[in-house]
Computed example of a mutant assay.
Amino acid sequence: MTRVFGEVASMYDDARPGYPDDVRESILDRLGGPPAEVVELGAGTGKATGLLLGLGAPLTAIEPDPRMAAVLRANFPGARVENTTFEEWAAPPGGVGLIACATAWHWMDPATRHQRARDALRPGGVLAIFYHRYNYAVPAQSAAIDELLMRIDPSVPEKDEHWALDDAVTSGVWRDVAEHRFHDHPVFGKAQYLALMQTFSPFRRHAPEIRKEILDGLSAILDDFGGSVALDLRTSLVLATL
């Protein structure tokens, strides 16, 4: 599943929202200034790469899917892109100052990811995990979308909003763990929202006929609400320090 997004790499790059500048500022505050270097895990097409390059440090982006990595290289020629997994990547001698992971930490091996990150950081280094939670600003529209998706696929698990914080704390690896939360309400037109839906892994795992059923149903719902959807976009940032 870590490589399923490559099937829609360009759509992913167009439809997925980026991350607020507050994420970068919070990372800088925790570090006390720019890091010597940054490693981004599961960088995808670079939805967080530009924000991380704004830290003013050399950046190595780790992305296992070659199709996603190709878009990433085109978007950010100033980043060093390694087409590999976190588990296969070797940290440089002495470690790195910041390891960042945007909406990809759940794809890393849960049995080893925290210890692997700790081992790759230099003393005083920071792990930054951040991700979006997609909710809806209009309750009636939210209820209609939830009913459709649950009726078609009731097996999709609901992650707790604080799962990465709990994961970092219970790992026992970190001296100091903190969570920051940010909020936005972007409005997506129907075409953009349907494209966004097609970049989510629960959607991509379905057969083509099920995907069509989902898209047709969502299209009808958005038509009932004026052809757009107001998202309640919640961004979580978890910072862990050695």
Rank of each mutant, 00 (worst) to 15 (best):
V229S: 04
D216S: 13
D224R: 05
F203R: 00
R234N: 15
F188D: 02
F188V: 00
F225G: 02
M197H: 07
A191V: 13
F203I: 01
P202Q: 11
D232W: 10
F225E: 06
G227P: 06
D216H: 08
R204T: 09
E213W: 04
D232C: 12
P186A: 10
M197E: 06
K212T: 13
F203A: 01
A191D: 15
L237K: 04
A220F: 01
I221K: 03
K190G: 05
R211N: 06
A230Q: 14
L231T: 00
S201G: 09
F203H: 01
A195V: 05
R211C: 09
S219V: 02
S219L: 00
R204A: 08
T199D: 08
G217K: 03
L194D: 12
A207V: 09
M197T: 08
A207R: 13
L196D: 00
F225M: 12
L215G: 03
K190Q: 14
G189N: 15
P186F: 12
V187S: 15
P186E: 14
S219K: 01
S228C: 12
A220L: 04
S219Y: 01
T235H: 08
L233S: 06
K212R: 14
D223C: 10
P202Y: 05
F225H: 11
L194Q: 07
L194N: 08
L196G: 02
Q198F: 10
R205H: 10
S236E: 11
G189K: 12
L215A: 03
A191Q: 14
P202T: 08
L194F: 09
V229D: 03
G189E: 15
S236A: 12
G226L: 13
F225W: 10
L237M: 11
L196A: 06
D232Q: 14
A191Y: 08
K212L: 13
V229M: 05
A195L: 07
L237A: 04
D224F: 07
L215N: 04
G226Y: 10
T235M: 06
V187M: 12
A207I: 13
S201P: 08
D223G: 06
L231V: 03
I210D: 05
D224N: 08
Q198H: 11
E213Q: 10
A207L: 11
S228I: 02
F188E: 01
Q192E: 14
G189I: 10
I214V: 14
E213A: 09
D232N: 15
D224Y: 04
V187E: 15
D216E: 14
Q192I: 01
R211H: 12
F200P: 03
R234E: 11
T235C: 13
H206E: 15
S219Q: 05
F188P: 01
L222K: 02
A195M: 13
L231K: 03
H206F: 10
R234T: 04
K190T: 09
V187N: 15
R211P: 08
R234V: 00
Q198M: 12
D216Q: 13
L218F: 07
G227I: 11
S228P: 04
L215C: 09
